[in-house]
Nucleic acid binder design. Structure first.
Lengths: 127, 127
DNA sequence: CGGCATCCCCGGCGATACTG
DNA sequence: CAGTATCGCCGGGGATGCCG
């Protein structure tokens, strides 16, 4: 294999993809999942913590306002489905769409890399 | 396989990891690569566009200031190595560290997901 | 219960000019 | 060539209060 071919395999060939699809595909992905609380929200919904109040209790540092904003963004980006039950008191449940579910392998990889390259080294350094 | 086991496999079990390592591993990863220009900078360095001026020409919308800031962050996070040649005019080359190189499979996955789930659907919708 | 409206502050980021 | 320095905007996000 030539050297240039090896280089081009180091990362996906983004320049080509940017021309073809009109944007950086990595940034496009990060824009959807990179919100301050989105990883945790997506995680909790994926394990059936699917009520607004439940999510709040799991993430006490995320204000109601931010929870709403992030959930709305996830919804309009098609990662999360919001179902409203017309009753008193109100009831809303959140679930992952197929698009949201398709993030699973990505999240597992992001999680593993974060543990190995960021969190675990940091913990060792503190001891 | 029980239903609970399936649920816990949908995403990595973050709650457990957060307790164990003191932070959300996914957010920890996104914090390092999520900067506005970082995906493109990392990509270009990975294909040996390794001079400051070269990077600027590849990304004309990224100001010199932002280029500097992002490169310094990548360096202090251990993803990029900065080598200065003491000569006039100055010469600096940037390369990926092993930690930076280890992002490759992650970037390929992020890129593929972005194309399939974000950019390609968007292009189709415009036609 | 599950939001929305408002106020306010801080930090990210752009523009511009200067430098070893 | 490869940066720094300074100014200034504006938008993300916190705090608080109100609502169906």
């Amino acid at each position: 294999m030539k050297e240039e071919e090896k280089k081009s395999e180091r990362f996906a060939n983004m320049v080509e993809n940017i021309k073809k699809y009109g944007g950086c595909p990595v940034s496009a992905t990060l824009k959807l999942i990179g919100g301050k609380w989105k990883p945790l929200i997506l995680y909790f919904i994926s394990v059936d913590v699917n009520r607004f109040g439940q999510l709040q209790r799991m993430m006490p540092d995320c204000s109601k306002r931010m929870m709403t904003v992030q959930l709305r963004e996830l919804e309009s980006d098609g990662l999360v489905h919001r179902e409203v039950f017309a009753q008193v008191p109100p009831k809303v449940i959140y679930t992952l769409t197929d698009k949201g579910e398709s993030l699973r392998p990505l999240f597992n990889m992001l999680s593993q890399w974060g543990i190995e390259q960021v969190l675990e080294p940091r913990r060792k350094a503190e001891n």
